[in-house]
């Protein structure tokens, strides 16, 4: 019951992109990693699928962010088709690229067969995003939410302790 991916991938882009093909491969790879059972348990979270005889595959849920060299910023949409044991299925991936980094990704299940739906939802639910941060002055903001403006008394006390601790 190996599910195999075929090469029918349709890509629509919003914006003018020309170097799409290598990128498509990465999208396919992402889909592949997520949907299909990896035999190797990774050091990340591993979910055990249904215990039935039919399905005991382990699915790794973590996808590391892909860094790709020299692609145009923009939103990309790709539909990946594949043949599952239950028949043909597809999954849609929407990705936003910014400075060669995937900044946003959404995976939408197009599956129609119950087992494929379960498999795809597992992948979608476990999709991990990673952030790197951006300097405050590069972003237009009204406010900042965080802990930098915490209790003044607390901060003063901590400073005092640090001074004492240095001696």
């Amino acid at each position: 019951m190996e599910e195999s991916i075929d090469s029918k991938v349709e890509v629509k882009t919003e914006g003018s992109q020309n170097k799409i093909l290598p990128f498509v491969l990465i999208v396919v790879l992402l889909i592949g990693i997520g949907i299909f059972a990896l035999r190797k348990p990774s050091k990340e979270e591993v979910l055990e699928m249904g215990k039935g005889e039919e399905q005991s595959a382990k699915v790794t849920m973590t996808v590391t962010p892909a860094i790709i060299a020299n692609y145009k910023d923009g939103k990309y949409v790709a539909t990946g088709n594949y043949t599952s044991p239950a028949g043909d299925e597809s999954v849609e991936v929407k990705i936003t690229l910014k400075s060669n980094v995937i900044t946003e990704a959404e995976v939408i299940s197009k599956a129609t067969k119950p087992k494929s739906i379960t498999m795809q939802n597992l992948f979608i639910g476990g999709f991990m995003e990673m952030v790197v941060g951006k300097n405050i002055n590069e972003v237009k903001l009204d406010k900042v939410s965080g802990s930098s403006l915490t209790s003044k008394g607390f901060n003063d006390a901590i400073e005092k302790i640090k001074t004492v601790a240095k001696v």
Partner: peptide
């Protein structure tokens, strides 16, 4: 709409 930056801790 209020744009609120999420501080990098």
């Amino acid at each position: 709409v209020l744009r609120v930056g999420l501080e990098n801790p």
